[in-house]
Amino acid sequence: MDEIKDRLLKPSKATHEDQRGKFISYLSIGLIAVLVISILVFITIHGLAMFTQNGMKISDFLFKTDWNPGKKLIGALPMIVTSFGVTLLSALIATPFAIAVALFMTEFAPKRGAKFLQVIIELLVGIPSVIYGLIGLAIVVPAVRTIYGGTGFGILAGAIVLFVMVLPTITSLTVDSLKAVPRHYRQASLALGATRWQTIYKVILRAATPGILTAVVFGMARAFGEALAVQMVIGNAAMLPQNLTSPSATLTSQLTMGIGNTIMGTLPNNALWSLALLLLIMSLVFNLVVKLIARKGRIK
């Protein structure tokens, strides 16, 4: 009798397992939280050092166009403009293609065709960015050079390379959002006598709009943060782009070019950290935009 009472009153083996599981999960979450917070704090401290220690002005950093930290010129506007230029341009080219491919995969293609495309898209995601950069350097840059003149380096070459890189991201997320449109929407539309085309662009695309916009923003975030491939084709001249084929530099390309040539704790190094902070803030903004779209865009 006592034995049974004992067993019932004490936590069972399963309870112990439960607690242990909880402990491990919390530990992992805690570790990741500490990691993320320390990265944020670290970049923020270093990124602000230029303004606190070296006495530079934030307004100079954001709005001036002369970048030469070695000589105390810290205008980052050329990089900001170029980063947004390549990002917007590549997303602009990639989105129609991505929507077309996604529509084909979800609405038209036979199962095998859709699967085949899926494999190709996954393959495109998996290709390392240095390879995109090499192809850009070997094919895109000379092509731009022969067609438009100049050196071939610039926003146009960068946007073309990024177009290929963000296409799979936008496509696969768009596919997900198209698949998430409830089946009865399609059925109801067809039952009302709408053609397939009318169903697609009046019902399916409308219902999937928040998802597609999210896909585009994710693609833009990837384009904005891409460093290596862009650095190889952008030309890396820290000046305001005069046109799409004049050499310029993005935030990321300036970082990868400069970091090996600067000394920790000096102004040129701190200036690079400020660029990194700017990148971090921008990616947070992209995330916020995604959240906003998800909340506001839903069909009611």
């Binding site: 030469n68 000379p142 050079r145 050196t151 071939g152 030309g235 890396n236 001249a237 820290a238 050499p247």
Partner: peptide
Amino acid sequence: SAIKAQEQDSNGTVQKLVSST
């Protein structure tokens, strides 16, 4: 000081670019 121009990060890239531009 030099005028602003495009920058490359290695001897190898410079060699390729000069020969093709």
